[in-house]
Design a protein around this nucleic acid. Sequence first.
DNA 1: ACTCGTAGCCTTTTT
DNA 2: GGCTACGAGT
Length: 787
Amino acid sequence: MESALLQGLNPNQRQAVQTIDGPLLMLAGPGSGKTRVVTHRLAYMLEQGVPPSRLLALTFTNKAAQEMRSRLERLVGPAPVWMGTFHGFCARLLRQYAPLVGLPSNFNIYDVDDSTACLRTAVEAAKFSLTHVSLGTLANRISYYKNRLVTPETLQAEGLSSDEHAVAQVYPFYQRQLLNSGAVDFDDLLMHTAMLLRSAPELRSELDERYQYVMVDEYQDTNLAQYVIVRHLAIDYPNLAVTGDPDQSIYGWRGANLKNVSYLERDYPNTQIIRLEQNYRSTPEILSVADGLIQNNQYRKHKRLVPSRAAGEPVRLVAYATGRREAEDIVAQIVAAANSGKRQLRDFAILVRTNAHSRLIEQTLVRQQIPYQLIGGFRFYMRKEIKDLVSYLLLLHNPQDDVAWERAINTPPRGIGKQTIAKLKALAGQHRVSLLEACRLALQGAMLGKKIAAGLRQFLDIQDRCVELVHGSLLDLVEAMIEMTDYRSYLLRCHQADGAGDKDALANLDELLAEAAELDRQSLEASPLEVFLEYAALQSDTDRLSTNNCVTVMTLHAAKGLEFPVVFIIAVEENILPHQRSKDDPLAVEEERRLLFVGITRAQDQLQLSYAKRRAFRDSETPGIPSSFLMELPRSDMQCVDLSEPDPFGFDPIDHNDDAYASLSGRWDESEFSQLAEETTAEDASVLEEAEFCQLPADELPQQVIAKLKGRITTAAQLAGDTAAVRQSEQVFRIGRVVTHPEYGSGRIIAASGKGPKRSVTIDFFSSGEQRDFRLSHARLSIESDE
DNA sequence: ACTCGTAGCCTTTTT
DNA sequence: GGCTACGAGT
């Protein structure tokens, strides 16, 4: 009697589902039905009588875990299988065994913000100067070491290059600071757990026994710490099943190590390897492009992508004049397809290399009033108003937490300034107590001014009164916190100063309350506060992906594991994809290539790759060079379109109709392609030409040129980097002038500040009544009238 | 102690 | 084009 779970699977998939004992490596290409196999395999194990509590399934994102759970439940109904992220699993484990690694069991989990604050303190404590190494670099390096299980001590013992010397200097201070505050960062969750399993053999074997079947998703993206964790859980019961695709390894920068595949083969010599190469997702055209690209990776085992779908449309490769044109054309294509009823908005994804590249796309979507979701921007729990309140909760949960204390102590302002904080820090250091405790000492010692003492007392009062609420309902606690800090009126005060936006912040508070209420409803075990804080720290915004009917905009990284009928990948340009920071390292370039491979293989029916010949970058505009990856694609099978419409004046008309250039499609010839690639040198002629035009007095220009120039004057002045032109624009855009913005209409300049390329003006718009700041060098502003 | 203006940094990707 | 640390002014 064959299990129903095996029906509709190909032979390899069946074999994977039925292999439940012993080590197993599933090499699953994109679109090979991996999630299906994995969930069917779990269901099959349950069907074979494996108790659900013996199973452990580890994923990278909460979203992946949720997906797995819901699909498993559809097959077998609710089952108490532990499924979740590595970080979530580690947090839960550490909560139980914290003392064994020297942590308090009420440790707090820091997000990037808190960790950075902590690192800053550590840098101060180490008396380290940030002139040569940035805070971000330090954070990255420390994170990298932690993921490779290098402790501060081992790092110091090793021979150090000059750069690493800096890291070695700060790392111990950072770690001590974390421990002092009774906190861990993301990487610590993994590192402490790995150390714990290594150093406590009895516990290790107990857990090995408890989790007899361990499954790891996206194995190609695991780092050493994660391997050590998994390895220690699967020694006595070596039933370790991992799925992965080396071609989709895109987290090397985070310490992911493809060697983990060879470690697996070393530690489990009898590992069964099953290849899932049949692709059910994409058209043969798309797969051929993906394959043509990935063949160029040198450090790679040969692997196939076997198409199973019927032929479809050719992959499009499009050149645009500017990033703006790119955005406008893509949005126009989406609108056209949606209006014709052929597609829904949810069918489209626009993928970008870095978060910053989403901005133009976003603006264009807003202007066309197309609903969209942006993944990879700001996490909900990173918003200021949420973080402020969470800090109070963190401090409540763990009074040792000095980072939370420092955020909360003067938010909203209650007269505790730098001086006072310095005093309290000194006091805390002297008595070796937390900053919260130092507040009490300072009040007892009557060493502060009246006003300051009153502020401190108020702060302590909030803490003391909330402590009583900790074990009650979370909603009550958060509500009380907002009341006592008078946080709502603080928000109102903040926003009165800078105009609009207060609605969002207040709405976010409501959403926070809603989430608290939700957790109250489902809270089963332990402290709801703890569950909530863990949720706040480990929730990523990728997890908030919705299925509403809207266009999705996200980074290539965030797109992993997803699929869309139509995919646009923008800015496929040299120094963007591959990224500038990767180009000196051949291995890093290969990772960039894999990143593009991941993007391409997200597409089911249609795919468009594009680049722009000029692209705005920070304060200037740079020539865009087509990515070298584009040369590697089988272009004879693709549809190559040049929409970059050469312009006699070297700039874009602002008001153009989409169809004015949409009809201009031609084939590239090879020469143009390589020519563009060679034009790597700085300013291209058209940019300079544009600048010259703009220094002419407006009435000396022909009418039609003026019409086109209108709105671009300041940009050109800035591009020239010419002080005379900049000064001129400063004179023209002075307070009181009425100006026009292509998006917001007319308004009056009410304030101006800065000089040179940083010169900016505040404009009060007539139609909306809104005030906005613009940098003259960048904004598309034009003069409407004299005085 | 707080407020405002400014220069300088930044951004690659994420749990 | 945004954010923030720092400094001058209140």
